[in-house]
Amino acid sequence: MSTPNETVNHEELDEGRRTLLKLAGVGVAALGVASVAGAPVFAQGEAEWDKVFPKSEKVDHEKVSFKNRYGITLSADLYLPNNRPDSQLAAIVVSGPFGAVKEQSSGLYAQTMAERGFVTLAFDPSYTGESSGEPRNVASPDINTEDFSAAVDFIGLRPEVDRERIGVIGVCGWGGMALNAVAIDKRVKAVVASTMYNMTRVMSKGYNDSVTLEQRTKALEQLSLQRWADAEKGAPAYQPPYNVLKGGEAQFLIDYHDYYSTPRGYHKRAVNSGNAWTQTTPLSFMNMPILTYIAEISPRPVLFIHGEKAHSRYFSETAFAAAAEPKELMIIPGANHTDLYDQVDVIPFDKLQSFFDQHLSV
């Protein structure tokens, strides 16, 4: 039995990391090189445009920040229609994908929905992007669920917003977090999960639930040993590169690379764009499943959107089956997982608008 002062067997750790990444689904294209983005910057007000999508002339943009109930300061972009009426508007909170930042997909969703008449807020989850929290680039099913409710706290206090008409959009891994948050946060009137991942499921069971008990146990043994290594060093180790293509990768990994590691979607603060999660990030995800109470979103409506060709489609299909009415599953013909990140001719914005117009009506 190891003690804190004993030397960790690093060869064993390396083997365990490879096992974990291969079998426990930790990668999920949410990993970058083993470096960490710099300290967050909490800018507020107007700022230089630093998004991967063009700025809309139909929308007013403001950088804002607020705290969640754990005291972590979240950085966000607030989008408001610039032709808005004097009356209060419906609002939508947006985040995701897992390992992305608000300057990427969530910001595109938020800005586009603001063009369509909603007050919207795209935020960086705790410990990532411009949001606070140390160490950098660690995730938690509990804290990241809370982040959505903290965003609802903030936007519901804005004078432009009718707090009785707030919806949520979660993209990819934050689609699962959004559903988890809305199940307990009864202030939210409607929720959309786009190209959803259930991060606790994939980390604990692997893709298509393929991880055996023996493999899961081995992964947890190695993660436990990693805690000794981190404790000895006084800082967490970070995961190895994942969006570096060497040839022979599955198509979905190529798709992730083509978004996060090319001008299409690269952003220096994104975990997925050349940074990395901590080695021990999977621990709580492997022990605390989200979506246990997904049926309790009802009677509020939930809309699942997924690509027909997405490797992740089964996450939405099984979550849809577990959800209660009213619910809807929209499959986009020919679309893969990342098409729903930024392809404006593929993302069904007309459907999103009609869904929220109906369910966030006065």
Results as ranks from 00 to 15, higher is better:
Arg201Val: 10
Ala229Trp: 10
Lys246Met: 07
Phe285Gly: 05
Met286His: 03
Arg163Cys: 09
Asp153Pro: 07
Gln251Pro: 06
Val191Gln: 11
Trp277Lys: 04
Leu223Ala: 11
Trp228Tyr: 15
Val271Ile: 15
Asn275Leu: 14
Gly170Cys: 07
Gly175Ser: 04
Val244Asp: 01
Ala237Glu: 14
Asp147His: 02
Leu157Gln: 13
Glu160Ile: 02
Val171Met: 05
Gly175Cys: 06
Leu179Gly: 09
Ile184His: 15
Gly175Phe: 07
Pro289Met: 04
Ala150Phe: 00
Thr262Glu: 00
Pro159Lys: 03
Asn243Ser: 00
Val202Tyr: 08
Arg158Asn: 09
Val182Glu: 06
Met286Pro: 02
Gln226Pro: 05
Arg187Cys: 11
Ala276Ile: 05
Lys218Thr: 12
Ile166Phe: 09
Pro240Cys: 01
Val191Ser: 13
Gly176Cys: 07
Met177Ala: 11
Asn287Trp: 09
Gln226Ala: 11
Ser149Asp: 02
Lys218Leu: 10
Lys205Phe: 07
Tyr256Leu: 06
Ser204Lys: 12
Ile254Pro: 00
Ile184Gly: 15
Lys246Thr: 08
Asn208Thr: 06
Thr262Gln: 00
Met203Arg: 04
Ala193Pro: 10
Gln279Phe: 13
Val171Thr: 08
Thr280Met: 02
Leu225Asp: 09
Val192Ser: 05
His267Leu: 11
Asn287Thr: 13
Asn208Leu: 13
Ala193Leu: 12
Asp209His: 14
Tyr207Gly: 13
Asp258Met: 07
Ile254Gln: 06
Gln226Lys: 05
Asp153Glu: 07
Thr212Ala: 06
Pro236Arg: 02
Thr280Asp: 05
Ala229His: 10
Lys233His: 13
Pro159Met: 00
Lys186Glu: 15
Asn275Ser: 13
Gln215Ser: 09
Ala150His: 02
Pro159Leu: 00
Thr200Cys: 01
Val152Gln: 05
Gly173Thr: 10
Ala181Tyr: 12
Ile254Thr: 07
Pro263Val: 03
Thr200Tyr: 03
Pro236Ser: 02
Trp277Ile: 05
Val192Arg: 03
Ser261Asp: 02
Pro241Arg: 12
Glu214Gly: 12
Thr212Arg: 03
Asn208Met: 11
Ala229Pro: 10
Val192Asn: 08
Ala237Arg: 11
Ala151Ile: 00
Arg216Ala: 14
Ala231Cys: 10
Arg158Trp: 01
Pro241His: 11
Arg201Pro: 03
Gly247His: 00
Gln226Phe: 07
Asp230Leu: 04
Trp228Val: 12
Gly247Val: 00
Gly265Cys: 04
Ala190Cys: 10
Arg264Leu: 14
Asn272Glu: 10
Lys218Ala: 08
Asn180Glu: 14
Asn208Gln: 12
Val211His: 01
Leu253Arg: 10
Arg165His: 09
Asn287Asp: 12
Glu249Val: 00
Ala229Tyr: 10
Asp162Thr: 05
Thr195Lys: 05
Asp162Asn: 11
Glu232Thr: 10
Tyr238Lys: 09
Tyr197Ser: 14
Val192Trp: 03
Thr280Lys: 08
